[in-house]
């Protein structure tokens, strides 16, 4: 499996660490109801098909990446940096 890191280019899966669903990006506000936190931390759509999840290019540029891919075929459709270029000052 290879991920096309937006900074480093196509790299072997072994350079990456996997976290979980991209839902981890949608952190509820501190005063959100308990249900929102339960959903955020635990409950998952877990699709058999297209999903978005988070990978960390640990043995590379250390960017966190949002990967759009298919959980049935392992086809990778897109790999985007979690931190937008705007936020990081246009550098990578």
């Amino acid at each position: 499996m290879r991920l096309n890191c937006p900074h480093c280019g196509p790299r072997d899966r072994r350079e990456f660490y996997y976290y979980g669903a991209a839902a981890y990006l949608d952190r509820p506000s501190p005063d959100a109801p308990a249900q929102a936190w339960d959903d955020y931390l635990h409950n998952r759509d877990n699709p058999a098909g297209m999903t978005q999840d988070l990978w960390y290019h640990e043995q590379g540029c250390t960017a966190w990446l949002k990967v759009t891919r298919n959980t049935v075929t392992h086809e990778i459709i897109a790999v985007d940096a979690v931190a937008t270029p705007k936020a990081s000052g246009g550098m990578a």
Binding site: M1, D12, R13, R14, Y18, T51, D53, W55, T71, T73
Partner: peptide
């Protein structure tokens, strides 16, 4: 293999 999958197969690492 550490990534979400329904493929019933894995990868080399």
């Amino acid at each position: 293999d550490f990534y979400a999958s329904y493929a019933s197969r894995g990868n080399l690492p």
